[in-house]
């Protein structure tokens, strides 16, 4: 594939790459919010809440993401037409966010549990409630420990997001497939791989910076 041809395809590839980034970042943000609640649920003294959160994590970590994606996209409307999610963005984001929440929950739980028990005791001895202690003392300390594994999860998710090409999302993988079939030539996968690398590199650098920033007190 010559350079001129590559340049004419570049806008399409870049648009695909942008969709990949948007998908990944939004999924990770919602996944992290849900993951935090799941993690707190797993640490809860309430047995029922703990069980429910355990079940969620078990389900979403134990089945392939592609299957979850197909389930949300194709199977839900079959179960009941009112469960049909509009368009491609929402089912794709939902599947990625629900899936990453399960992984992030375990990451967050491990980070919270790694905080010295004395911190919770000190907070309680000062009269803080469990919620105040978590919110002001424990969770903020877990940030720094969270950054490296969350970075890993983000990069994994960025690459896994290529699966949503299967449900008609026009992201980088799909665009690459379309160009490849047009050209009856697989060489386009190489520049697409470079774009994936560029994106993962950006995230790696950002997370290294964040880690440094949150390490100031250590």
């Amino acid at each position: 594939m010559d350079l001129n041809k590559l340049m004419t395809y570049m806008p399409a590839l870049l648009e695909g790459a942008r969709n990949t980034i948007v998908l990944t970042v939004i999924s990770v943000i919602f996944g992290a919010i849900l993951g935090l609640f799941l993690a707190l649920g797993r640490l809860s003294k309430n047995k029922l809440i703990d069980r429910i959160c355990w079940f969620y994590i078990w389900l979403f970590r134990g089945t392939p993401l592609l299957m979850q994606l197909f389930f949300i996209y194709y199977a839900l409307p079959n179960i009941n037409p009112t469960l049909t999610l509009p368009g491609q963005w929402i089912p794709a984001l939902l599947a990625l966010a629900l899936n990453s929440a399960a992984y992030l929950a375990e990451i967050i739980r491990a980070a919270i549990q790694s905080i010295d028990k004395g911190q919770m005791e000190a907070a309680k001895a000062l009269g803080m409630s469990y919620g105040q202690a978590m919110g002001r003392v424990i969770v903020p300390q877990s940030y720094r420990r969270l950054i490296p594994p969350v970075g890993n999860e983000l990069i994994a998710l960025l690459k896994d997001s290529s699966l949503v090409a299967m449900i008609a999302m026009t992201e980088l993988m799909k665009v690459t497939n379309q160009i490849s079939t047009r050209e009856s030539n697989a060489a386009i996968y190489l520049p697409a791989a470079v774009l994936y690398l560029a994106m993962t590199t950006i995230f790696t650098v950002v997370f290294e910076k964040l880690e440094k920033k949150y390490s100031v007190y250590e």
């Binding site: 004395g118 005791e121 000190a122 000062l126």
Partner: peptide, 16 residues
């Protein structure tokens, strides 16, 4: 707890 101030063996200051 607010009536009782506690000082721990390992200080337990909030490092962040």
């Amino acid at each position: 707890c607010s009536k009782l101030g506690m000082v721990f063996q390992r200080f337990n200051l909030f490092p962040h």
